[in-house]
Simulated assay, not measured.
Amino acid sequence: MITYYVLLWFSATLNLAWCSLQIWQCVPGKELSWNLLSLLTALGTLCLEISLVAFLLQESYASGLEALAHTFIISGLIVGADILLKAICVFGFHIPLFMDGKTTHIGKWGLWTVDKLLLTCTYGYILFVHYSTWRDKLPPRPAFYNYVVVMFVITGIALSGCGLAAIGVGFGHWLYSLVVICYHTLYLPFVYITFLADFFQEEDLLLDNAYYSEMKDAGFFDSDLE
């Protein structure tokens, strides 16, 4: 989990920069910088999102190091292909994926619709397996299913917004923008609270117990027994 903690901080830094530099969208000559920052932010967050699911899905039948290696291979291939496709669309075909001011571009909303559809189907499939006879193959963690349910709802709402925007409904752009804001501001704290907060509390408890044992062995509490 230490690896995910580092990745969490990396993604948090990128998201903070992305949120702080929103003005770059409206400044002439900053389109390249904004697109690069958006691609890096998407890379970090998507890598964290896929790695988290991939690692936990392997937890029941693979060791820690083996699962970690498989996780980074899987997430690296998926995220690499996704970012490459988005980079080609942005810099090769000049599709304004990350420019909020251009709301009627069919290619932009078509690509985002496919992107959110794949994520929604992935989370939906995990929930389907959880309530089927194959649920034993999934990790027995309530927090994992809480995470999947929340992400399924979020990606489903984003998919609806993209679909509406693709057919020219203005409400769809507003809905998708709202989801993006919530995602960039709340996703990382949500991951930390769901998975990492308890982990570090357990680490602190184990450390306190180790200190207590060492002090007990050294005789610091002998005077209390006299």
Rank of each mutant, 00 (worst) to 15 (best):
128 F>W: 01
175 L>K: 06
137 K>A: 11
200 F>H: 11
84 L>F: 11
179 V>C: 14
56 L>Q: 09
51 S>E: 01
23 I>D: 13
64 G>I: 00
166 A>R: 05
192 Y>M: 04
105 H>R: 06
9 W>G: 15
184 H>V: 09
160 S>V: 05
60 S>N: 10
204 D>A: 14
129 V>A: 01
134 W>D: 09
50 I>K: 00
63 S>L: 03
38 S>F: 08
215 M>T: 07
205 L>N: 13
95 I>L: 06
122 T>I: 04
202 E>T: 13
60 S>D: 01
44 G>N: 05
103 T>H: 13
185 T>W: 12
116 K>F: 04
147 Y>N: 13
17 A>L: 15
89 C>A: 13
56 L>N: 08
66 E>Y: 04
213 S>G: 05
170 G>P: 08
193 I>M: 12
63 S>E: 00
177 S>Y: 01
62 A>C: 14
223 S>I: 05
131 Y>F: 05
88 I>C: 02
213 S>A: 14
165 A>C: 06
62 A>I: 05
78 I>C: 12
46 L>K: 01
87 A>M: 14
151 M>L: 12
189 P>L: 09
160 S>K: 00
99 M>C: 11
117 L>E: 03
14 L>M: 10
91 F>V: 10
53 V>I: 03
213 S>Q: 15
186 L>D: 09
187 Y>M: 10
82 D>I: 13
146 N>K: 11
169 V>K: 10
1 M>A: 12
55 F>D: 09
204 D>P: 11
52 L>N: 01
210 A>C: 15
8 L>H: 06
8 L>N: 07
148 V>I: 03
7 L>T: 03
65 L>D: 00
76 G>H: 02
52 L>E: 03
58 Q>Y: 07
157 I>R: 03
201 Q>K: 15
158 A>F: 02
83 I>T: 04
45 T>P: 05
6 V>Q: 11
8 L>Q: 04
29 G>P: 03
14 L>F: 08
49 E>F: 02
127 L>F: 00
159 L>W: 01
23 I>N: 13
226 E>P: 13
198 D>C: 07
26 C>N: 15
212 Y>E: 10
16 L>S: 13
